[in-house]
C-alpha cells in the first residue's frame, strides 16, 4: 500500500520564546528545527505499514528551501521518497496549504501514484490550525478521522480500525480505504534515525514543486507572548535538607 505523510518544519523553542523584531515570527537565529511529535508518529506509522504490507511511503512538506532538512530526517527513518512544495518562507494560511497539498496529490495521481492512506498530525506544532487534514480529505472526497492514537488494518488491508481518545476511554472508528487520518503522539514510539539511515536518506528521491502563494484568508498580523507567570519562586532549600520546608508547604496546602 502507498502511504503519504505531511510534515511541517518548526523551530525547537527551549525554555523561552524570543520574537523577531517585526513580531511576525519567532527569532530562530539560535534555534534548531524539527517537526511535531504527532507528525513523527505519522512518519513512523507509514514506515511500519509499508514494512508490513509492501508498497511505498512518501513524505510531503510545504515550506522554505531549508525544510528539505525535515524531509531528509523522515527519509532517514525509512520513508522512501519526498515531495517538497517550496515556499519563499512566508507562512501559508490553512486554505492555501491544503490547496497546494491537494494539487500535489492530483499531480501524483495523474503520474500514476495514488495513496491508500494519507497521514497528518492532529495539529501542527506552531500554528495549530486543526484543519489541514479535514480540508484535504474533503477535496479528495475521502473519509477523515482526526486525533488517532491506534491504527490497524482490517479486511485484508481494505479497511482500517482507528481509536481516538475520548475522555478517559477510546472511541473506535472503522473506515474503508482510501482514507485520510490525523494522528497524535502516543500512536507508536518513533525510531531514531541510524547513521546508515542518514546516509541512505541523502540519495533518496526528492521532487520539488513551486506553486504561487494565494492571498491569505486567515492572515497573521503579529505575535505576542502571553503575560509571564510573574511568579517569584520561594526557595525551600538545597538538597535533602529542604525536606522539612517541603513538608510544611504540603501541610499548608492541606496535602499531608
Amino acid at each position: 500500500m502507498n502511504v503519504l505523510v505531511a510534515v511541517k518544519r518548526v523551530p525547537v523553542t527551549g525554555g523561552r520564546i524570543v520574537l523577531s523584531d517585526d513580531r511576525r515570527a519567532i527569532d530562530t537565529r539560535h534555534l534548531g528545527f524539527t517537526i511535531s511529535p504527532h507528525e513523527e508518529c505519522a512518519a513512523e506509522e507509514a514506515v511500519r505499514l509499508v514494512e508490513a504490507h509492501g508498497g511505498a511511503s512518501t513524505v510531503l512538506t510545504l515550506g522554505p528551501p531549508e525544510a528539505e532538512e525535515q524531509l531528509r530526517d523522515s527519509l532517514a527513518v525509512g520513508i522512501d521518497r519526498a515531495i517538497h512544495i517550496v515556499t519563499d518562507g512566508e507562512e501559508w494560511d490553512p486554505q492555501a496549504t491544503a490547496g497546494a497539498i491537494v494539487a500535489a496529490l492530483e499531480a501524483e495521481r495523474a503520474a500514476g501514484t495514488d495513496y491508500e492512506l494519507i497521514l497528518f498530525g492532529n495539529e501542527s506544532a506552531d500554528a495549530a490550525n486543526f484543519q489541514i487534514g479535514a480540508r484535504v480529505a474533503r477535496a479528495l472526497r475521502r473519509p477523515f478521522v482526526s486525533g488517532v492514537k491506534a491504527l490497524a488494518l482490517e479486511d485484508g488491508a481494505a479497511a482500517v480500525r482507528l481509536e481516538q481518545q475520548a475522555g478517559a476511554g477510546r472511541d473506535v472508528y472503522r473506515v474503508a480505504l482510501p482514507a485520510v487520518v490525523s494522528v497524535k503522539e502516543g500512536l507508536n514510539l518513533p525510531r531514531y534515525p541510524s547513521v546508515p539511515g542518514r546516509l541512505r536518506a541523502k540519495r533518496k528521491p526528492l521532487e520539488t514543486r513551486t506553486p504561487e502563494r494565494p492571498a491569505a484568508r486567515l492572515a497573521l498580523r503579529s505575535l505576542s507572548l502571553p503575560p509571564g507567570s510573574g511568579k517569584q519562586a520561594r526557595i525551600l532549600g538545597h538538597g535533602a535538607e529542604a525536606a522539612p520546608a517541603v513538608v510544611e508547604v504540603l501541610a499548608e496546602l492541606g496535602l499531608l
Binding site: 519562586a233 520561594r234 526557595i235 538545597h238 538538597g239 535533602a240 517541603v246
Partner: peptide, 19 residues
Amino acid sequence: FASADYAVIGDLHEVLPAI
C-alpha cells in the same frame, strides 16, 4: 523555576527520598 511557586535546588535522588 520561572514558573514555580516553590523551588528545591538539588539532586532529586537525594531530595525525593528525604521528602
